[in-house]
Design a protein around this nucleic acid. Sequence first.
DNA 1: TATTGTTATACTCTATAACTATA
DNA 2: TATAGTTATAGAGTATAACAATA
Lengths: 152, 152
Amino acid sequence: MTDIAAASGLNDPISPRLGYLLRRASSAMMGDLGAELAQVALRPVEATILILVGANPDCIQSDVGRMLGIKRANMVPLIAGLVAKGFLTKSPVDGRSLALSLTDAGDAMRAQVDALMSAHEARFEALLDGFDQARLREALRVIAERGDESDA
Amino acid sequence: MTDIAAASGLNDPISPRLGYLLRRASSAMMGDLGAELAQVALRPVEATILILVGANPDCIQSDVGRMLGIKRANMVPLIAGLVAKGFLTKSPVDGRSLALSLTDAGDAMRAQVDALMSAHEARFEALLDGFDQARLREALRVIAERGDESDA
DNA sequence: TATTGTTATACTCTATAACTATA
DNA sequence: TATAGTTATAGAGTATAACAATA
């Protein structure tokens, strides 16, 4: 079922639109990733945080949020959840900032999700065989940077 | 601020990933569209429905939902809202199916959002000056069709 | 028996406002 | 005065289950 419009017999004035194509592509890829990560009971955002903290030991919570476009208020339950699962530790650096690091279990999980996400990525890259993927990434970056405000 | 990672001094192992780039690009473009459509107090999904019904007078509500990947249950308040605003009419065709059509006000609004969305589209296409946009769309379609389940 | 529309409900994601304590 | 973390809350978006009426 490559064309839902044809299946319903409807005219389709929206599928050609770039915004709609982007949204569908993003949703398809995120959905696939979510299904993969269900194996380890993590959501894509949680897996991303593990990878990011793994690459930046003792990083500040608010910096992580800024980088991922997640507001301070929404970081709180996210980080608390990963701490509760035993994957993250919080340690004060100031009297106001928190440094995040992976526990041993967190680093093991990070390695696992890193492998899952790389395989996921490779699977989609294989679909884009005849395409110039560097150009594709460039184009996506151009679009993404057009709307660059994260938190404040 | 083209690079948030650099601003925070964090290593960035996730920005190169295709899924993350797609998500950011989609979110940027949807956010921009949402801001544009705020002028006429409509959300992107509502504008899309007006355009789709305009191109398919007397289409069935469930077909619209199927085409947009919106579940039957979630179509109900969406269509009710557009009816309440005076843009849509529902008329029974079966004893169970509803045909949707635009009112005169709905068609006027459709023309307005069509213009807004075309301008929005053109603005982003202008950013992609040096890129092969046909190839870009093809690539996005390939990715999108990899995860094609909408409702049931 | 499968489909359409509907209600009720719940969970995720995102956003704002307000508070505290620190720099 | 601006920032970091927190709490509470509200709005979208999306999901399921169950039901009535119909094809």
